[in-house]
């Protein structure tokens, strides 16, 4: 009996803690919005963070996109060839990338590359009292540290996802057209006939913006909320990856279910 009670109590307290964290995260988001004016007035702070979150993620994004595109081309070709419609390979690669893999894989890589860097950096700043020092200097850490990183993430993520999709399609093109020898004309024309700009490409872009928001705010919150110790920061970094990945996949399902009816 006692065990059952303890179990229920455990569920309750865990739920309460999660809710409290969600609330604190939302609070941070509104603080970011309030202090965003500051980070736009001094745009170089945001540009600097775009360099760290966006430009430095470029290599991993481009390389993985090319490989993902090549794999899609290869796998798609094997399957489509059985039905004698290997020209549709372009459509398959493009739709898969633009609608799903572009935004989702980019977001997962972004969480691993940029998200962890953000959490670790902010956590470390907290552990070494840099954030407190800023507070005492009457400078809001949200305005100076959090808001520029937030906007940098929001800007970088859609750009990275777009680059991912385009490079992935080039990877598919490389395999399908240059290596296997699918007709180049039908590769592109089938693609153009079936990929719709406002439905597929714009919806993919919307996805990437939503994922960018989720990954960035989670990374920022985990860093900001991390216990100021070495252990706390390392746990927070792990949590960033886990929570971001789950959030991205969950959000992807929700968005997909009412985007591509």
């Amino acid at each position: 009996m006692n065990k059952i009670l303890n179990f229920i109590e455990g569920i309750g307290s865990t739920f309460r803690k999660k809710m409290a964290r969600l609330g604190a995260g939302t609070r941070l988001f509104f603080l970011v919005l309030i202090y965003s004016g500051d980070s736009f007035k001094r745009i170089h702070l945001t540009i600097r963070e775009i360099y760290f979150t966006g430009v430095l993620s470029l290599i991993i994004i481009v390389v993985s996109a090319f490989f993902v595109g090549m794999v899609l081309g290869l796998q798609g070709y094997y399957t489509l060839e059985k039905y004698g419609s290997s020209e549709a390979i372009g459509v398959l690669v493009a739709l898969a990338l633009v609608r799903e893999l572009g935004p989702v894989v980019t977001a997962l890589l972004f969480a691993g590359r940029a998200g962890t860097a953000i959490t670790a950096e902010i956590g470390l700043m907290k552990a070494t009292e840099q954030l407190s020092a800023m507070e005492v200097m009457a400078v809001s850490p949200v305005a100076r540290i959090i808001a520029p990183r937030f906007w940098a993430g929001m800007i970088s993520m859609p750009i990275l996802a777009t680059i991912f999709s385009m490079v992935g399609i080039l990877g598919g093109y490389f395999i399908a057209v240059l290596v296997i020898g699918v007709d180049e004309g039908s590769f592109w024309s089938q693609m153009q006939a079936n990929v719709d700009f406002s439905n597929d490409i714009v919806d993919g872009a919307i996805k990437s913006i939503v994922f960018g928001f989720a990954c960035t705010i989670i990374a920022l919150f985990e860093g900001f909320d991390a216990p100021p110790t070495a252990e706390g920061v390392s746990r927070a970094t792990t949590r960033t990856v886990v929570i971001s990945s789950l959030a991205v996949l969950g959000l992807d399902f929700i968005l997909t279910s009412f985007m591509f009816v």
Partner: peptide, 25 residues
């Protein structure tokens, strides 16, 4: 305030660290 371990901003140079409060205020 002088913090226990200095709490210098690790991403700024010594010069920029000292200039920080002036630039902000």
């Amino acid at each position: 305030m002088l913090f226990q371990h200095g709490a210098l901003f690790t991403d700024l140079s010594v010069y920029e660290n000292v200039a920080f409060p002036m630039r902000e205020h």
